[in-house]
Design a protein around this nucleic acid. Structure first.
Length: 439
RNA sequence: GCCCUGGUAGUAUAGUCCGGUCUAGUAUAAGCGGCUGUCGCCCGCUAGACCCGGGUUCAAAUCCCGGCCAGGGCGCCA
């Protein structure tokens, strides 16, 4: 089919901005055919764009021949432009429709689409992810990513306002800097390099110069993890702050979470309604539970976790039932946390690391960092890591490392919380896991 | 990596336990035709499927074995 040229047509309104008060006005709309209801003498085209839908009404005997013949060949998902007149009416839910004067077809679509975009016939997550570009056109999915966008915008605004500088650290790193978690190897001009699993070491170094930094970016973990809250590529929102400790960044974090919930509620009422999800704006301060208190609470529920162990997922689920909102877990055993988390001065077996939980899900992890080079080397060794492999990081500690603290939010997990989605793949545009690298 | 459950038209499902009128049902999507106020439009017609490989049996969508894949759970995971 010969497609129409875009030419000098420019959008005057999004679908949702066409209002009954505009009766008689000419508008130019762009979007996609979502549905066609042809009653014979009259035809209804539902035009969808990013913001919503509007009905294009074509009374067979009252429109120009060119409009009629154009509308004859329209199919679902065709990308079109419509120039037409707004008509106030009682017979559509929105109270308006547009009578076209001219229709342009910019892009066609296959007659048999892999998923039903109106949502009448549901598709499995696998089918949807296989046709993700189309799946993302569904209004509910657009809503998910608008909410995610609103959250990121709110986080950036909040951190800018608090004087944080947005930075960009390397994604390609030379060595397995943090031990533990598996890294993806990269062939770097014949040398072995890795995809970064965290900006941790770089953001710590940056507090020496920029003092308060944050970064929003993707990180990579080659874990076997096959759960509904792990992917191998995820977006982390990291901060690091000089002259601060865990309590300072926890206070920053709880206010940030409150702010995000408030902003998303205000800006995304329509999207939340579409997803049938409600966000409760939390009050600060959030509940703070020590690791020991958590163990005691679990014991009362007949869940036994030996002291020193990380808390396994089933135990966290139990805990989430007792605390169905935000809460911190603090005072973790030092050896259960990363080498750079500062042990308490008075009680070195306990550290100044914390997790921010939402129900059973770990949303954020953070803590006071070690600023003392000798102590850091000691902790590296205790973790079975070779200080020699960290020499480029350790040298920073010869250049005046201030006391500092920070945290990292898992953006997709935050989005799960904000949208009520139960699988992290739903809130990731193009999820990557052990079994999926396409599309 | 382990456990449980599953894999049937484009999509979503029924059928599988207890093998045989299953010539595989239904909904929706698609194609064709009809319809002037639909909004999950409606009506008629058409076409469309048993994950792959092996085995048992007179006979396999159905039972057995292996593989691949998916969902959930576990483990792993600063």
């Amino acid at each position: 089919m010969k497609l129409d040229s875009f030419g000098d047509w420019r959008r005057t309104h999004y679908s949702v901005d066409v209002k009954p008060e505009m009766d008689g006005l000419e508008v130019t709309l762009f979007g996609w055919v979502q549905e066609i209801r042809d009653l014979g003498g009259i035809r209804f085209i539902i035009l969808q764009d990013r913001e919503g839908t509007i009905q294009i009404t074509i009374p067979r005997k009252k429109v120009a021949n060119e409009v009629l013949s154009k509308s004859d060949i329209l199919q679902k998902r065709y990308s079109i432009g419509v120039k037409g007149t707004v008509k106030k009416t009682e017979v559509t839910p929105r109270g308006v429709e547009v009578i076209p004067k001219e229709i342009k077809i910019f892009g066609t679509a296959a007659p048999q689409l892999p998923i039903d975009i109106t949502g009448k016939t549901p598709a499995s997550l696998e089918t949807r992810l296989d046709a993700r570009a189309l799946d993302l056109c569904q209004d509910k999915n657009i809503a998910v990513f608008k909410i995610q966008h609103a959250a990121v915008e709110a986080i950036r605004d909040f951190l800018f306002e608090k004087g944080f500088v947005e930075v960009h650290t390397p994604r390609i790193i030379a060595s397995a800097t943090e031990g533990g978690a598996a890294l993806f190897p990269v062939d770097y001009f014949g040398r072995k390099a890795f995809l970064a699993q965290s900006p941790q070491l770089y953001k710590e170094q940056l507090v020496m110069s920029l003092e308060k930094v944050f970064e929003v970016g993707p990180f990579f973990r080659a874990e076997e993890s096959h759960t509904r809250f792990h992917t191998s590529e995820f977006v982390s929102i990291d901060i690091e702050q000089a002259f601060a400790d865990a309590e300072d960044v926890m206070q920053l974090l709880e206010r940030l979470m409150q702010h995000v919930c408030k902003v998303v509620n205000e800006k995304c009422g329509k999207e939340l309604a579409l997803l049938k999800h409600k966000i409760e704006v939390p009050t600060v301060p959030f509940k703070r539970l020590t690791y020991d208190e958590v163990l005691k609470e679990l014991e009362r529920e007949s869940v036994n976790v030996p002291w020193g162990e990380d808390i396994p997922t089933p135990a966290l689920r139990t805990l989430g039932k007792i605390h169905p909102h935000f809460y911190f877990i603090t005072d973790w055993p030092t050896h259960s946390k990363a080498f750079y988390i500062k042990p308490r001065d008075d009680k070195p077996e306990i550290c100044e690391g914390f997790d921010l939980m939402w129900r059973w899900l770990e949303l954020v992890s953070g803590g006071t960092r070690i600023a003392d080079k000798e102590l850091l080397i000691k902790r590296l060794k205790e973790k079975g890591l070779n200080p020699e492999a960290f020499k480029f990081h350790l040298q920073a500690f010869d250049f005046g490392m201030p006391p500092h603290a920070g945290w990292a939010i898992g953006l997709e997990r935050l989005t799960m919380m904000l949208t009520g989605k139960r699988n992290i793949r739903e809130v990731t545009l193009y999820p990557r896991d052990k079994f999926r690298v396409t599309p």
